[in-house]
Every structure is written in C-alpha cells, then in structure tokens.
C-alpha cells in the first residue's frame, strides 16, 4: 500500500484541557490549533477570516491569554488550557459578556463575535474595571465589519458592571 498523503496522516497526538475538559486528539502534524479545533474536534464556534494572523476572528484563550489560533501549532498546546466560545457559559447559563452582547446589539453577523468575547473575557479577568480606552485597545486586533465597535464597547462595559455586581453579592 502506498503511504497516505501527509494531510491524511493523523500521526500527532496531544492531550490538553479544552473548555475545562481533558481532551485527546489526533491530527496531521502541520495543523494549527484553529484547524484542530474546527476540523478534528468540530468546535466550530471559533472562526477564521484570513488564517494569516490579520483579522483576529480565530482568537481563543491559551492558558488564559488571547492568542490567534491560526498562528499556533496544535502541537504546542499539549498539557495546556484552551478556552473557546463554547466554554464561556457556566452551569447552563450564558456568561455575562454573552448576555450583554446579545442584548445590546454587539453581535450583528456574529462572525467576529466568538473571538471578541474570549478576548474581552481575558481583559476582564485581568482588569475587572477597564476604561473605554483599555477596552478599545484590548480588542483592537479583532476586526468587526458590521457594528462600528461602539455597541461592543458598551456590551463589555455592561458585562463588567454585572460581573462586579455578582462578585459583590457573593461576598
């Protein structure tokens, strides 16, 4: 038998934590994290707009930091934590960012939305009270062609207040 083309050889394997769940996956060794998420794990919530690191649509959190998954080799992710839009909600509820984006018109076509949501989550995790300028800067690598960004800023600010409110109630 002749060897399979390299694209069909799922010879690489990693174990990593995807949205809090231990996950094993086999894939062709050249594949990016984006490709493995979408094509081998069918987590299609993460999108792509260029696969060259230009548009920001493929952002996911790698160990809590936003990265462009089209520029990360899946082989580099063994043992690490990956969070995608599918892992944002908790206990069957939407994350406050998701609620705010839905209510305030921050998602129009919804294509850039998953990446902006996880990027905003990383911002709020590190800085629970960002200014408008800090929000602008945090998502400046995520292009959105629909909204003009303003409703996105407002949604992040609304979520920020809701998260702060929830935390104060827990205390």
């Amino acid at each position: 038998m002749s060897p399979l083309p390299i694209a069909s050889q799922k010879t690489s394997q990693i174990r990593f934590t995807l949205n809090g769940e231990e996950t094993d996956v086999s894939f062709a060794p050249y594949k990016t994290l984006l490709e493995v998420l979408r094509e081998d794990l069918f987590h299609t919530g993460t999108k792509h707009g260029c696969e060259l690191g230009e548009c920001g649509a493929c952002a996911v959190l790698l160990d809590g930091q936003p990265v462009l998954s089209c520029l990360v080799l899946a082989l580099e992710c063994g043992g690490r934590q990956v969070l995608t839009v599918e892992g944002l909600g908790e206990d069957g509820h939407l994350h406050p960012l998701q609620d705010a984006f839905a209510d305030l018109g921050a998602a129009q076509c919804g294509y850039c939305t998953p990446a902006i949501l996880v990027t905003a989550k990383a911002l709020l995790d590190q800085n629970p009270h960002p200014t408008r300028d800090q929000i602008r800067a945090a998502i400046s690598g995520n292009l959105c062609r629909c909204t003009g960004y303003l409703q996105i800023f407002e949604a992040v600010e609304a979520a920020m207040l809701k998260i702060a409110d929830q935390k104060s109630k827990v205390r």
Binding site: R38, E39, F42, T44, G45, T46, K47, H48, T84, V85, E86, L88, G89, L94, L97, Q98, D99, F101, A102, D103, G105, A107, C109, G110, Y111, T113, P114, L117
Partner: peptide, 19 residues
C-alpha cells in the same frame, strides 16, 4: 434579536462550519 443567542454562543452555522 431572535438569533442573538446562536451568535454569542458560536452556534450560528456558517457555511464553512458544515462538516
């Protein structure tokens, strides 16, 4: 909007999401 939940959860199925 009626399709907002699908969009903020990444469940809106765009053409390239079809496997």
């Amino acid at each position: 909007r009626v399709d907002a939940r699908a969009k903020v959860t990444g469940q809106t199925r765009f053409a390239d999401d079809i496997f």
